[in-house]
Design a protein around this nucleic acid. Structure first.
Lengths: 228, 228
DNA sequence: CCCACACAGATCGTATATCATTTCAGATAT
DNA sequence: ATATCTGAAATGATATACGATCTGTGTGGG
């Protein structure tokens, strides 16, 4: 029959809609309509929402329901900080396992990113950025840390779409830093150094976004959605 | 009525049984009996199990069911490594927020631990150890990282009870290192240094356990439960 | 004019029932 | 004797139904 369970279907649908921004932060996820749309009962939808809750993509209150997680600036900061931590560690742990072919592939992606710089296509740039880093951290031998990296990136997808914009100046720097990281991995630099650089790479993005958003405080509110 | 939902009750019951070792790794969690025992239907139990799955305390296969997660030595290594990472970061981030009173409290706990050394009560020592570190990382301003620390410790509880024993020699070193960490926090040492020391403190425990388990390979198998 | 209470609608929480899948035992054939 | 097939029992997955809880609104009294 169907290769996947209904809970899984529901999860994927809701998830994709959150990722795509169709369900904006604060959107109330009501069981019945979603179940109706997928032509199933509310039970699998419930499970899907609980899963999303565990991943912190939605918040849930008893007898009230679920809504897509609201995103404050501090939330963005915390998520980025966490991602910097786990991705830095994952990249360092993966470094010894990364093959010459993978480095080659990462270089190609980075080259494409460099080309994209002029086109100013933030969406595409972000995709490539994930691809690039994926090549570097997917070899991480610690599945727990790798899982945390994935969760962090997933969370970032939502945050990005919701309110935090792309910082123009940062892209160029980012591409340059990528090359530095690649070089260190090739040179088999000590894990602690790779970790530090990889973490700083992400922290720098965080700082850039915060600085940028400070400058444009008048246009973008601190919270994407009012608290109540 | 009841202050908590049935899913919550089921979650707590199963969780406590896993923590206490009543449900050993590999134990099959069958819905119906658990539901019967708690005098509820299987639906809330399902949700509870899905939650435990998200926390990686149980593994789940479709149409097969759930069982308490099996623990291999590599699993222990990965969990410890992850905990070292996030706890180190949490401790460093929390350090500036830690008050003199909290340091005082931590010192007292550490003193108690020192007393416990002679009594050889691993259970109690582990409890105090968690208490000590809790004081240091609970002030972490980043809730995501703090959450990861909690998850890591919860996971450790299970692993500890299941198959990995206490390493006698390590305890003494551990208390000494605690004092070093306290001193650094008091001195407002740079975050990066505190992070490094806190991480090394946990990594050292990991190494000690691995070395110990290598020595005693003949008595303790690598996997606590056969794969199939 | 404002506040409190009550009622109604919406929504979640759980139980029960039915369907689907897996597993295992026993039988049968090679 | 072993391998394979078959069917029944166990178990999970989902649907439906009902009860519980919350939220908002309107009405009555102060």
């Amino acid at each position: 029959m169907s290769s996947e369970s209904k809970s899984e279907q529901a999860y994927r649908l809701i998830r994709s809609r959150i990722d795509s921004g169709q369900y904006v932060p604060g959107y109330r996820l009501v069981l019945a309509p979603i179940a109706g749309e997928l032509d199933m009962s509310v039970v699998p939808v419930r499970e899907a929402i609980r899963r999303l809750e565990a991943e912190q993509l939605v918040t849930f209150e008893r007898n009230i329901g679920a809504q897509v997680a609201l995103v404050k600036e501090t939330e963005y900061l915390h998520t980025m900080q966490t991602l910097a931590l786990v991705e830095g560690a994952a990249t360092a742990l993966a470094a010894p396992e990364v093959s010459a072919g993978q480095i080659q592939r990462a270089r190609e992606i980075n080259a494409t990113m460099r080309e994209t710089l002029n086109a100013f296509d933030p969406q595409r740039f972000t995709e490539l950025n994930l691809e690039f880093h994926s090549v570097l951290f997917e070899s991480c031998p610690n599945p727990h840390i790798l899982d945390l990296v994935h969760r962090g990136w997933n969370r970032m997808k939502v945050l990005r779409n919701s309110s935090f914009s792309f910082v123009p100046g940062r892209a160029q720097e980012s591409v340059d830093e990528h090359e530095v990281i690649l070089q260190m991995i090739e040179d088999r630099a000590p894990a602690s150094e790779i970790e530090a650089v990889a973490r700083a790479h992400r922290t720098a993005t965080l700082d850039a976004v915060l600085a940028y958003s400070d400058e444009h405080r008048q246009t973008a509110e601190r919270e994407s959605v009012p608290a109540a």
